[in-house]
């Protein structure tokens, strides 16, 4: 019995995981979200910005982390448009270009924000760190036009934004090491305030930068998105997703405990 339990086909575990996701999704289970301080710090910073301030959102993610970061992007964009905070979007990843453009235009349409006045999406430029540094000197030295090809000189909201001087915050929505690049090159060199929303995989490694105040705040994966949705009082996909997530976490918790109990009983027997 014990040996059978220890060596069950992995596909049985797969089925359990699938069931733990499908059933709560169908039942639309919902739990309240407790907001963590690092997410609240991002929210507070944006919430306290004066009207017509500008923030820069970097959509540095691809389809592989879309599930975690797109709801986060949508929640922050809703907050900004509601507060009349202007948003410049860009990406250092080519796959982020279509995703950033899509989430910005869809959220803007929903909130009645106007392209070129309330938001602009600049698209993608290769070069990573050089793009970050180049924008510090002059944004138009890196992005001469927006994603649709309109020259920056013809975009109303870009008239008084030449470099980081008029950008209140850089929010990096990231699935790789880009937050560290923004910290090292935009924050250190240009004293630019930086915040990040990252995938679950990366959350732990960025905590030192919060304590050293090199990061304004940090949104952790889908949980961060759900926390932000809670803060702006607009529960959407992330809030629903985190409720479903609970059941899978419980399942894995139980699997680990069962696996360990079986392991210790077996070890005692062999001894």
């Amino acid at each position: 019995m014990l040996e059978k339990l220890m060596s069950i086909d992995r596909r049985i575990v797969f089925v359990l995981v699938a069931v733990a996701v499908i059933i709560p999704t169908l039942l639309k289970v919902s739990f309240p979200i407790t907001v963590s301080q690092p997410t609240r710090s991002v929210y507070d910073f944006i919430d306290e910005l004066p009207k017509d301030s500008t923030i820069l959102m970097a959509f540095n993610y691809g389809p592989s982390s879309l599930a975690e970061l797109e709801p986060m992007a949508a929640a922050v964009l809703r907050h900004c448009f509601r507060k009349n905070v202007r948003v410049i979007g860009m990406t250092l990843f080519n796959v982020g270009a279509r995703l950033g453009d899509r989430v910005m235009s869809e959220t803007a349409a929903e909130m009645g924000a106007v392209d070129g006045e309330d938001y602009v999406f600049l698209g993608f430029r290769p070069g990573g760190i050089s793009v970050i540094l180049g924008m510090g000197t002059a944004i138009d030295s890196v992005f001469d036009a927006d994603y649709r090809g309109k020259p920056l000189s013809e975009i109303p909201m870009m008239q008084d934004v030449r470099n980081y001087d008029r950008i209140a915050l850089v929010l990096d929505l990231a699935s790789s090491a880009t937050p560290e690049a923004w910290i090292v090159y935009a924050n250190t060199k240009y004293k630019q305030q930086v915040a990040a929303g990252v995938t679950g995989v990366m959350v732990s490694e960025l905590y030192p930068y919060i304590q050293s105040r090199q990061l304004v705040g940090l949104m952790p994966g889908l949980l961060g998105a759900a926390e932000y949705e809670t803060l702006i009082d607009t529960p959407e996909k992330a809030t629903a997703g985190m409720s479903v997530q609970s059941f899978v976490h419980l399942l894995i918790f139980v699997l680990v405990v069962v696996g360990n109990v079986a392991f210790f009983i077996q070890r005692r027997r062999t001894q």
């Binding site: 996701v21 599930a67 679950g200 995989v201 952790p220 997703g241 899978v248």
Partner: peptide
């Protein structure tokens, strides 16, 4: 946190 990240993708 990685578990949370991976499960998020499945949920989506």
């Amino acid at each position: 946190n990685t578990v949370m990240g991976r499960v998020s993708l499945l949920i989506q």
